[in-house]
Amino acid sequence: MNRVLPVLTVIGVIVVLWYAAAVWMNRTWVYDQAARDGATVSFAEMVPATLNQERPVLPTPHQVVTELVKSTFGMKVTSKKSLVYHGWVTLSATLLGFAIGTGAGILLAVGIIHNRAMDLSVMPWAIASQTIPILAIAPMIIVVLNSIGVQGLVPKAIISAYLSFFPVVVGMVKGLRSPDAMQLDLLKTYNATGGEVFGKLRLPSSMPYLFASLKVGIAASLVGAIVGELPTGAVAGLGARLLSGSYYGQTVQIWAALFAAALVAAALVAIVGVIEGRVLKRMGMAR
């Protein structure tokens, strides 16, 4: 209960500020309309006219929520206007990309741990890959893959993986190196092989680090999937919804898609968090 009140307070303040901003930003259109008609509007007449415009500069919260609910629950999920449909298209690319990115990240981390040449060479490239704006490289990935006949889900998943492998590499390298000298010496006294050291000590020790990375990685995956939908003129997905919204000045649609993306991201992170809690508790490593 003592957590609910502050949260509600903050949400309340945001909503109030949002309505104020919506009135402020949308009033120009109301005044312009009135001037065109040769009429004048008072402040009391202006305010209601800013709250339910069809193409507002800034949609009001209730417009966004209404649109979100209508396009989520009010349509058949196969409809091209359904956010469930677009959300699923993006989510499937996100999950595939997350799987590829996590797998690649773990493999790279294992290589970095066990191979000195990789240790010295891979990390600078991994860091460099993340300094390139994803918006710049995404169209090229799509074009290149398209030229070899790969279309649809996979190119988006690759872009998604491109963003999500990095936190996994960084976290797993740290995690696989987390056992201290004493732990490693102990296994040495048993004449343990490198594989046994990895399987029995390094991998279990890295789990808290892996989950911390996965939480960052899955959110990055979603961003990657949405960005992958932007430059392609994609017909489906939250990214496509954002894009078509901006083409046709459908600001309400844009904001609804943004909120849908945020909710999906929050849900994904929460799911990883729940799995993290269960696994680490089971492993006696929960903090």
Binding site: M182, Q183, L186, T189, N191, P204, M283, M285
Partner: peptide
């Protein structure tokens, strides 16, 4: 190699999992 000794360190170093 011949498992001549067992070594006990300052910390127990048991695996929590």
């Amino acid at each position: 190699q011949a498992r001549a000794y067992g070594y006990v360190f300052q910390a127990a170093g048991l695996y929590p999992w």
